[in-house]
Design a protein around this nucleic acid. Sequence first.
DNA 1: TCTGGGGTCCTAGGACCC
DNA 2: TCTGGGGTCCTAGGACCC
Length: 422
Amino acid sequence: MDAFYASVATRDRPELRDVPVIVGGGYRGVILSANYHARAYGVRSGMPSTRARRLCPDAVRVPADHELFGTVSRAVVENFRRVTPQVEVVSLDEAFLDVRGSTRRLGTPIEIAEHLRAVIHDEQGITCSVGVAASISVAKLASRRAKPDGVVVVPPQEITSFLHPLDVGELYGVGEKTQAVLHRLGLVTVGDVAHTPLRTLQRAVGEGLGRMLHDLAWGRDTRAVTPGRVSVFGYGGDPDKSMGAQETFGRDIDDREVILREVLTLSAKVAERMRVAGVAGRTVSLTVRFADFTTLTRARTIPEATDVTQEIYRAAVRLYDALGLQRARLRLVGVRVEGLVPRSSVHRQGVLGERDRGWSEADRAVDRATRRFGRAAVQPASLLDRAAGRDEASSTGPPGARSERSTGEAPLPVGTKSSEHS
DNA sequence: TCTGGGGTCCTAGGACCC
DNA sequence: TCTGGGGTCCTAGGACCC
């Protein structure tokens, strides 16, 4: 899709059609998308909103509506699947289709491309661009070339003449850092990479990446379109290998108590998603980012896989304390659980002295309650007054009204907002 | 008002085992 | 009497993608 989030966010607002529009990206954030009017000013997805604002002060800001994005995305993917079941969904706004099996029924790949573009335009009111080629990587580059609202076909005999003039940064796997390394070697175009000895390339960027770039630069890409490979929200895909959550604070924080409350919030969020997905994991990792943006991660593997909020939280707190931060100002904190396996494959070892009904059962009760009564229904007690603070901020109460908290220790008890459900 | 949040994969070193 | 080779697991950091 072309400027997907921006297109969807403005499709029912004709008054925004001819003005620069920026989607998402509030305080301390990055923008999600920008329409082509805004891009003309140099605004790009992923750009800090402050910078976008500087580049294009007149842009209209539109909030992200993820539910709507998902709905439109699913409708578009349905259109793809009517062409072929061989659809690999890469993200909400991008997919690969292997149409070899569809040409007899639907015509040439170009005809299929134009058909899809027309249907998506008519049904969803947004435009998209299509690259047609004999491999995934070339099709992807061709689609980029086709934007906005176009089709680019790269026939097999034109692959190298299409690829070689492109900037190395266009290649999959070449980001800012790798591009700088290649530029230092005097490699600016894809053709330069293609004509560099493999070993030289591998010395510069590593064995695996060097091999991949050399292949891609010659259009060698035999990977098949694989339906359901990537896990995109709502499309299934392979099981996740890790799940995590992180949060950038509104302002940098040096207070252990505040930081650990966030760690608990994140642990609960991750654990709940794990329980919904039916997975458990053994390695808990904690990420902290300091005010100067330097970032540390620490990981600890526990004896048995868990999906229990308190166990993840306890491991994360140990990692945090082991850092020995002396009131360093943190910009971000994150919790991730890795090495996920199906929960059904985990058999818990009974521990002497441990209650056989414990936090795991409590978590499940909390899950049931929040499903029925909403997220605020049951929370760790240590998070309750903060939740109240949020309510105040969003409604009428004084934002500063917060009660004193006792200690930084163990926000263990599960509290309830209403006495009815415990 | 500089730099989100969700992920994956690779590399490299050390511990440990056979 | 001075140090092999292969494998796995764990940790930390980094790069990248959407």
